[in-house]
C-alpha cells in the first residue's frame, strides 16, 4: 500500500470512533466536606480524536494521564460528563445499557492481568465460549453448547493454542499463554474494535514479542481497529499505525507513528522517549 508520507493531512481510512469534546471527572472523596458534595477531579479535559478503521492506535502517557479512562469511555464502561463518542457515526456517549447491548459484541477488551480476568474455576474453552452465549451469533440465534465449544476452539487455534489447551485451567498456563486466551476471548465474537489495556506489561520480552506479533497479524486478517494502551513507546513504535500521547487528561500529540517519533512536538513525549532503557550500552543515559 502506497501511503503518501509527504502529505500527512490525507486520511484514507474513515474513522470507526470519532470523539469530540470528551470530558470526564471523578469525585475527589479525599477532600469531601462533611455536608457538601465532593469536589471533582478532571481526568479528561475535552479530548478530540479519531480512531481510523482497520488501524492500530497507540495511546501512551504516564500513570494518571487518563489513558485507561479514555479506553473505558470508548467501550462505555464509563459514561462521560460531556462530549460525543461517535461509533460509526452513532453517538454512544449517552446510550443506556439496553441500547448499548447490541453494540457490545463489537467492542471487546483484553486486560492487563490475565490471571484476574480469567475465571480460575473454568476451563479455557468455557472462558472463551462465555461471550458466545451472551450474543446471538450471525443468523442463528442462541447456538448450542457444542457449537459454542467448537467456536471457542477455533478462536484458540487462531491465537496459536491447539485444542488441548481448551481443557486446561488458567493456572496451568504461562503468562503469555494466558494472554493469548484473553485475545481468543476478545476475537471469538469477531468484533470490529478491541481495547487492549497494557496487555504486555506483565510479560517477559520473548512472550511480549510473541503476543505483539500475534495481535498484529490478527488485526490485519480480521481488519480490526485496536486501541492499544501502553506506557512503552518502543512497543508502540513497532506495533501501531498512529499514536496519541496523553498528559494530565489532554492530548499532546496525535498523528502517525512516523510523524510523532521523527519529530515529537512536546517535551513530555521526549521525556517519555528518553526514559526508555534501550538494549544498548550508554554511559550518559542517567545524566
Amino acid at each position: 500500500m502506497a501511503v503518501p508520507l509527504t502529505c500527512p493531512q490525507t486520511d484514507p481510512a474513515p474513522a470507526l470512533f470519532s470523539v469530540r469534546g470528551l470530558r470526564l471527572s471523578f469525585p475527589d472523596s479525599a477532600h469531601k466536606p462533611l455536608f457538601a458534595p465532593a469536589p471533582r477531579i478532571e481526568v479528561l479535559k475535552g479530548l478530540d480524536l479519531d480512531l481510523p478503521k482497520g488501524q492500530i492506535t497507540g495511546i501512551v502517557g504516564e500513570s494518571g494521564s487518563g489513558k485507561s479512562t479514555l479506553g473505558r469511555v470508548l467501550v462505555r464502561l464509563m459514561r462521560p460528563d460531556a462530549g460525543q463518542v461517535l461509533l460509526n457515526g452513532q453517538d454512544i456517549s449517552t446510550l443506556n445499557e439496553a441500547a448499548l447491548r447490541p453494540l457490545r459484541r463489537n467492542l471487546q477488551m483484553i486486560f492487563q492481568d490475565p490471571m484476574s480476568s480469567l475465571n480460575p474455576r473454568h476451563k479455557v474453552w468455557r472462558i472463551v465460549a462465555a461471550p458466545l452465549a451472551r450474543y446471538e451469533c450471525g443468523s442463528a440465534p442462541q447456538i448450542g453448547l457444542a457449537e459454542r465449544r467448537d467456536q471457542a476452539l477455533r478462536a484458540l487455534e487462531r491465537v496459536g493454542l491447539d485444542p488441548g489447551f481448551g481443557e486446561r485451567y488458567p493456572h496451568e498456563l504461562s503468562g503469555g499463554q494466558r494472554q493469548r486466551v484473553g485475545i481468543a476471548r476478545a476475537i471469538a465474537l469477531e468484533p470490529e474494535f478491541i481495547l487492549a489495556d497494557e496487555i504486555v506489561s506483565g510479560l517477559d520480552v520473548s512472550s511480549q514479542a510473541q503476543v505483539l506479533s500475534l495481535l498484529k497479524s490478527l488485526a490485519q486478517e480480521m481488519n480490526l481497529t485496536i486501541a492499544f494502551i501502553s506506557h512503552d513507546l518502543s512497543v508502540i513504535r513497532h506495533l501501531c499505525d498512529n499514536v496519541i500521547v496523553l498528559n494530565r487528561g489532554e492530548i499532546l500529540e496525535n498523528g502517525s507513528v512516523e510523524q510523532v517519533f521523527s519529530a515529537p512536538q512536546s517535551d513530555i513525549t521526549r521525556l517519555l522517549l528518553d526514559a526508555i532503557p534501550l538494549p544498548e550500552l550508554d554511559d550518559k543515559w542517567f545524566d
Binding site: V205, A209, S234, R237, L273, P279, E280
Partner: peptide
C-alpha cells in the same frame, strides 16, 4: 533475548521472540 527487546530508536529491526 536482546533481539526480543523492542527499540523505538530502530524501527527497521523487527523484534522477534
Amino acid at each position: 533475548l536482546i533481539a526480543a527487546t523492542p527499540s523505538y530508536a530502530d524501527p527497521s529491526r523487527s523484534f522477534s521472540p
